[in-house]
Simulated assay, not measured.
Amino acid sequence: MLKNDTVQTIREKALWMRRRAFKMVHDAQLGHPGGDFSAIDIIATLYFGVMQYDPTRPDLESRDRFIMSKGHATGALYTALCAAGYYPEDWLATYMQPNSKLNGHPNRNYLPGVETNTGPLGHGMPVALGIAIAAQISGQTHRTFVLTGDGELQEGSNWEAAMTAGHRKLENLTLIVDRNRLQQGMGTEDTNGLDPLDEKFEAFGWDTVMIDGHDIGALLDILAAPRIGKDRPLCVIANTIKGKGVSFMENKASWHHGVPNAQQYETALEELV
């Protein structure tokens, strides 16, 4: 498929994911739509333009692995897995309902395509590190991608993992930071400043790229590029907008876990076209 066609396919998937995720949050009156919307373009690019996987064989050994470390953004993850064919769309209507497989945080015991349970922030990166080390030792060529929130990088476990990944030259490991600069309650730089984030990862032995996290063409170029022979892990700092695509949500910390009323829901659907 030509790149322009792939970009258009990803855009269509991302739009469907935003609309469907917002409906899930509206119906459940629970969720984290701001972080869903900042991450959806990244996740759609991975699933529909970059990663190798087979939804009919979720445990295929040669599959690429995706770890959703910011596990609270389940609207983004669940809609991606659904669109990729891991389970039918009617499952989405059960989001956060009693006995649903679609919990507030992803659980690999319930859902195909979920590589590991996440939710406690700072855990996804160390798990991804372990998967990448195992592949390196066994000579496997699959890649491991992990998406973290930026506020999550205030957890020290991420930096222990970053140091080890650089030391082991894990070219099969790619970290994407959803850099929307907002966390629960306030801005990341007001809480515990992260800048200069690129220089921190470079100091740990990583290749580092800063891009617009909503530019699907740029995401595709960076994430799909071969890493064999690079001898360094890759950190993609994706500058994003919390609540991207909905005017009353964009760059608002209150939408970290805000839920829409009926009028807000209708307004959002009018804008998400």
Rank of each mutant, 00 (worst) to 15 (best):
E89T: 02
S62D: 12
A83T: 07
V146I: 11
M17S: 14
G34D: 02
A44I: 07
M24W: 03
S254K: 04
D36V: 13
I40C: 12
Y53D: 09
Q29C: 00
Y87K: 00
Q136V: 02
S157F: 03
G71S: 02
E199P: 00
F37E: 02
M163K: 03
P112C: 06
M186F: 11
I228F: 08
A224M: 08
Y265S: 05
F145T: 09
I40A: 09
E61H: 05
Q263N: 12
A83P: 03
P196K: 05
Q8E: 12
S69W: 03
G187F: 04
D90A: 01
G156N: 02
H26S: 10
L129M: 11
Q52W: 00
H257F: 11
I131P: 00
T6W: 00
M210S: 15
A262R: 10
T74G: 11
L182I: 13
L219H: 04
E61Q: 11
D90E: 12
K200T: 03
L153I: 03
Q184G: 13
T174V: 11
Y47M: 08
L219V: 09
I42E: 06
L220W: 02
P88L: 05
F37K: 04
A225F: 05
I222Q: 13
T188C: 14
D64P: 07
L234F: 06
T240R: 08
L147H: 11
K244D: 01
P226H: 13
F37I: 10
F48N: 04
E89K: 01
V114F: 03
Q97F: 01
T56Q: 15
A268R: 01
V273E: 12
H123L: 10
L121C: 10
G166S: 09
A134F: 00
I133W: 00
Q154M: 12
A28M: 05
M51K: 05
H105F: 10
H32F: 10
R232S: 08
K101I: 11
T45F: 07
L153H: 04
L46P: 09
L220Y: 13
G229W: 11
G104M: 04
K101D: 13
K200Y: 01
G34L: 02
G34M: 04
I67C: 09
G31E: 07
E12M: 13
L60Q: 13
